[in-house]
Nucleic acid binder design. Structure first.
Lengths: 214, 214
DNA sequence: TCATTTAATGAGTGATTACTCACTTTTATT
DNA sequence: AATAAAAGTGAGTAATCACTCATTAAATGA
């Protein structure tokens, strides 16, 4: 099984899709992430997928519906394990120190991003232009994640491990550092040699010292 | 004079442009940043600019040339003052402390971003898809800026103000924090109330403590 | 096995695309 | 004022766009 098909399986494991439908989605992901949504034609997707153009519209009423059907499941994947696992653990106190939580959080996000990179690129590209995606992202991903992050930060602030600062500002600084690493690692310089463990540790230490009680 | 025209003047002050050409550029900036480059048609730009469609192609051979002519000057603006002013000052030691340099750098970038926001949006959107823009950005902006940043960081590391860490990693962490603030401020939550001075100070302190000698 | 549903097809649709070009109008030069 | 050059026009073009639909193929269930 190819890497692409592994990616596909993880994103669409719960759905019952025909073989042609899977090929359409794979072809669309490839073209959308390479050329952008608007610059990709349905005929091109059909050709790459090895199906008739009409087959695309049998399963998806419009081209935009195809886009949404690709990006929407990713949002669930992005938010799901984050909320269910990480935060549950934190709020139930298995991570006594904020550093341990940070390490786990970055590692978690890192794995998902690595696997879903093309779809994430599509998502980031189209969110500014597709109100439907934008709304879904803000409500399902950003809002829920942010609320939880605020809780966690408050928790560690109360423990005296973090500096007293509006949690919003603290969250912004921590999130910037994490995404700065992920974006550098997987978007800007994916071909450089990375000692991931070391860079994650540096990022964690940077956040820790930057936000620690002085 | 409208705000848009101020923006225009700053971006294209050195060029001799006809009135219609200015209107075309303004219309293109508006449409490109709202709908994206690929999703914007030349007929739409012509209509918005109040010119005939042929006029666009009198000045720009292709639609892509129009895009480049909008984004390219911005890159010079982004890099120009950064290198000429900020770094010159740093390397000639008027900023004894790294914090003072950081404050000045963020303030400088902040002003430019505020003014050029729509064009910056276009640039960020299209760099992944337009090799010409990508190359220009990497060579003119990213490379030069990065080289200088590395020098500055090395300078302050030698002074003992910054932790010993590969300068590349230190640069990544500092840049992430700065851009995290700028993106939050002007892209994600431009409508929230911001105490800019305070947030910049928090960001500076965060970087300082995160990277300071321990 | 046969009937019914579902999947797949590809030629065809009108609309829109980026771009051209013969022509008119404006500006600059002498 | 005469001439040349540059700017502006808008109807026209072939290509391509997202999408439809009548028809055929495959899968399903009794």
């Amino acid at each position: 099984m190819s890497e692409d098909e592994v990616l596909l399986q993880q994103l669409f494991e719960d759905d019952k899709l025909t073989e042609k439908q899977k090929k359409i989605i794979l072809a669309a992901i490839e073209s959308f992430s390479e050329k952008g949504y608007a610059a990709t034609s349905t005929s091109e997707i059909a050709k790459k997928a090895g199906v008739a153009e009409g087959t695309i519209f049998r399963h998806y009423k419009t081209k935009k519906e195809l886009l949404v059907s690709i990006v929407a499941p990713l949002m669930a994947k992005l938010i799901g394990p984050f909320i269910v696992n990480d935060f549950h653990k934190v709020l139930d106190h298995p991570y006594e120190h904020v550093e341990d939580f940070l390490r786990a959080a970055i590692q978690n996000r890192s794995d998902i991003i690595k696997k879903m990179l093309p779809v994430i690129k599509i998502m980031m590209q189209e969110i500014p232009f597709q109100p439907e995606l934008r709304e879904q992202f803000l409500e399902q991903v950003a809002r829920k994640t942010f609320d939880r992050i605020l809780l966690v930060i408050k928790e560690y602030q109360d423990k005296g491990q973090l500096i007293e600062m509006p949690t919003l500002s603290a969250a912004r600084l921590a999130i910037s550092s994490i995404f700065g690493y992920l974006i550098s690692r997987y978007i800007f310089f994916p071909d450089s040699e990375w000692d991931d463990e070391l860079e994650i540790e540096r990022t964690v230490q940077f956040i820790m010292h930057g936000l620690s009680q002085r």
